[in-house]
Design a protein around this nucleic acid. Structure first.
Lengths: 202, 202
DNA sequence: AGTATATTAGACCGGTCGGTCAAGTCAAGG
DNA sequence: CCTTGACTTGACCGACCGGTCTAATATACT
């Protein structure tokens, strides 16, 4: 039981790293197997298809995020607005570390996959969409609390939360294209300036 | 001369459509040739490699943009801030039209390619980066004029311009993942709320 | 011990990939 | 008329793709 779990985890971890560092299409199952020290037959014992592997990778990373620094950043002990800065900082240091390790800024796995596969694979698209919804919910909660505490004037918290997530993804996209994490540090904090007013504030 | 130019243009137009609608890796040269009614040998007469084709597609699209609705949106006759709304509207209608034609929101060709290839292909990455720089410059000019005209309080126009571009790309990314152009219409206008203050406003 | 089951091993499959190449077609210029 | 060089044709290449399959092996239960 520990052996197979280990094998599956090794596949998952390797796939995640490769998908994140390159792309879905560019990484073959053979390469994943070689790097994970697993044979093809074993791979297809655990994952029925490459698509299923991708699903598992998305879920895996999403869980790690939720339990990792997203949980830290959106800790309710922090003042709501500081959570946004925490999130930006976390992304900055992460991407910076990844770049000095691999030489390239990998960007956001979810964003990368979303743009690559969402015109071609409904199942993966839906999954990625759910990940974004979940992320947006964290922003939403923080904004609601910020308004409640009077730290922010009232606004359309749901729309603004999504807008903030979009901004982060956009900043990461640009930073990756420049291959320069500093873009995140410089542009990131402006996330706090984004506002969408209430439609009918009567 | 008209024949060969036609062939090259047909390849370019077909490749652009396919790359935009799907992805770089997912579209093969054979498919492009078939759809463009061109033989493989002819293809390689005009383009030394798939990478060269991608470069040409990027340049082609970039030119069309610059001469097309980017030129319209950033027309100096328009009040600077209205140019931002014009840009958002243009993207919205474009994506909406594309979706009703193909069933899927293709998103931004440059953003798509950037996330897909920039960890793997320095040449394409640099080209895409240049496209973004050029786009950012349009925003920059608009912001400078807005400040000059007193329509906006002073701010770090260069950084804010890049932030606005990032925001747009992020909004398109999210909209594509949702496969819903309405995201652009709802989140887009908040581009005007983004601000990065001057570092040393003393 | 014996048997069922989960896992591993790795050869193998048809198909596609980007790219090459030799043999031509064709129009323009001398 | 003949040569030149741009363009086209389509067969061909080795490599790799995702995925299958059979046989061997480790593990778990009775």
């Amino acid at each position: 039981m520990s052996i197979n779990a280990d094998t599956k985890d090794r596949i998952l971890a390797t796939a995640r790293e490769l998908f994140h560092g390159r792309s879905y299409a560019d990484v073959g199952i053979k390469e994943i197997c070689t790097l994970a020290n697993v044979q093809k037959g074993s791979f297809y014992h655990f994952f029925p298809s490459k698509q299923d592997l991708a699903m598992a990778v998305i879920d895996d990373m999403s869980d790690d995020w939720a339990q990792g620094f997203v949980a830290e950043a959106f800790d309710e002990a922090l003042p709501p607005i500081e959570r946004l800065d925490y999130m930006v900082d976390a992304i900055y240091y992460w991407q910076k570390a990844a770049k000095s390790a691999e030489g390239r800024m990998p960007g956001c796995l979810f964003g990368n996959l979303a743009l690559e596969v969402s015109t071609r694979d409904e199942v993966l698209r839906a999954r990625l969409n759910a990940v974004f919804d979940k992320a947006s919910a964290s922003f939403h909660k923080a904004l609601e609390q910020a308004v409640e505490l009077g730290e922010m004037p009232p606004l359309d918290t749901a729309a603004t939360a999504t807008a903030m997530l979009a901004y982060l993804e956009g900043v990461i996209l640009l930073a990756k294209t420049r291959n320069d994490p500093e873009v995140v540090r410089i542009l990131g904090p402006a996330i706090k300036s984004i506002r969408i007013e209430l439609r009918h504030p009567n």
